[in-house]
Nucleic acid binder design. Sequence first.
DNA 1: GAAAAAGCATCAGTTATATTTATGGCGGAT
DNA 2: ATCCGCCATAAATATAACTGATGCTTTTTC
Lengths: 314, 314
Amino acid sequence: MTITQLQYVLAVAEYQNFTLAAEKSFVTQPTLSMQVQKLEDELDVLIFDRSKKPISITEVGKKIVAQAKNIVAEAERIKDIVDQDKGFIGGDYTIGIIPTVMPTLLPMFLNTFIKKYPKVNLIIKEQPTDALIRNILDGHLDAGIAATPLEIEFIKERPLYYEPFVGYVPKNHRLSSQQLLTTEDLHVNDILLLQDGHCFRDGVINLCKSSKSLNGEHFKIESGSFETLVSLADEGMGMTLLPYLNTLELDQKKKQYLKQFKNPSPAREISLIYHKSELKIQITEALKEVISSIVRGAIAFQDVKIISPLGKKN
Amino acid sequence: MTITQLQYVLAVAEYQNFTLAAEKSFVTQPTLSMQVQKLEDELDVLIFDRSKKPISITEVGKKIVAQAKNIVAEAERIKDIVDQDKGFIGGDYTIGIIPTVMPTLLPMFLNTFIKKYPKVNLIIKEQPTDALIRNILDGHLDAGIAATPLEIEFIKERPLYYEPFVGYVPKNHRLSSQQLLTTEDLHVNDILLLQDGHCFRDGVINLCKSSKSLNGEHFKIESGSFETLVSLADEGMGMTLLPYLNTLELDQKKKQYLKQFKNPSPAREISLIYHKSELKIQITEALKEVISSIVRGAIAFQDVKIISPLGKKN
DNA sequence: GAAAAAGCATCAGTTATATTTATGGCGGAT
DNA sequence: ATCCGCCATAAATATAACTGATGCTTTTTC
């Protein structure tokens, strides 16, 4: 049994296809076939059932794959140990960020980070929360940035900042005369929401008292971007809620329609999340430090009340 | 990096000597040297400092060795998974037993076990508790039988039975007129003890109220076997305490001097202990079942009060 | 339902890697 | 100073990993 064989098994298990797995492992298909067979011979069990296409994993195979993941991850950790000892921070680092955070947060820290840690090759992907979790669990992502608390087993959450919700209340809206908003003012049928699948949407619905009347309305508009929501609000279709950082880039003209909440303002907690096995922990720590220190300046702290992304999406 | 390389590193770390480590690994010394070097090259660190004899492990080396132990153990676990799936119970299984339990317990279960699981190659070693713990922690023992509770990190304890202490009070002894003993009757200076290093000794001292007066007495006899203690007691040197199972093999004549304790009788808890990583868990479970079922018949249960082996020895 | 396509296994040949035997060199003991 | 124990190096060999070509089976397509 070799670590390479285990990696091959993992590749096949992942892609359910020897040929594809071989490509991804940068070897030819026979190499993969033979090594997997060799391991199967050594253990004297079938890991994969090749009799039908697509191939499937046997019951023992599943257990073996799970254990193989462990072993391969633990093996990679050795390089981590050495790197940490040398004080070296570098190598590939893949991070996923939820769509509602990506455009505002990324430009804030990216430049600083790559300057400070030039040897780290950051690979950034925009993904909804559920994909983020899956990819962190199976090792495709080294870390993620998402709304928390998620409280997923095997995933650690390290809060980066608390981002208050800000209301965007257009002219002539029911609430436009108020100075400050309260959560009681909100009616879910009156608020323009992001498409289903965004955790920010779930957070907002969670926030509104009258969320029970969400269905059965005679009109409902949902968009995938805050920009669209603001435009729709301007057209008199209702109000909307924005995360604080998204309000910074609005036109000066539109900023007049922003209304803060009364303290404690509802807010979302944005955290760096990563597998609790703490692979590449030095880079994760470095990233957390960079983002925290930058956001500290951008978000004026206030009394805040965390809203959970109950739907666990986006 | 290969699992074999990690195993070689572990061997060198253990024996602090390449030549010896090579022998134990059943390869030649250059093989070991080269593979260790290769790993060092790949990681670009020195694991061992060869400049002085005997060689020493570098600081990073220690961390690498610790992680390597993990990986190798996890890798071996794969065979476990397969065995479990096949319902196969076999292979080498090394167990350590404390001296005061070995002679009485071993003959009780050994025969039954090897008949029931003929494919398991049991290797049994008599070792004091501290050695047991060390060997379980570093993987040299698959399990141990010792007095508990020990509460050692990474070690699981599964109680097998509770063995009451029985007093051996010779003719003309201060207590020989009593029917039943109580712990209050005991005086440490009056009891013949095993040599230092046996946990049973520690348990007894722990039991005696007047243990403070242990030192500074004008005579003290300690022996390594219960047989000697009984003989000494017969010579009028004092009384002694025996674990219940040890009383079963006494002469009929001597059995008249045995005195039970009033309920709840002081007792020691004997457990199967093993690394919490649960390597070879199927065999461990099988062993536990065999011993438990046999001892269930031998020890008449009664009210019992556990005495901790505080000294954590033997 | 035949033909094409996709996908895994097998084989022979090659390359890479692990291991061995023989030997050299260095530190520590006598 | 010499010897001995111990690790490194070198060259040769054995073993294992990988590739390209090909064959066989299952699935898809028309």
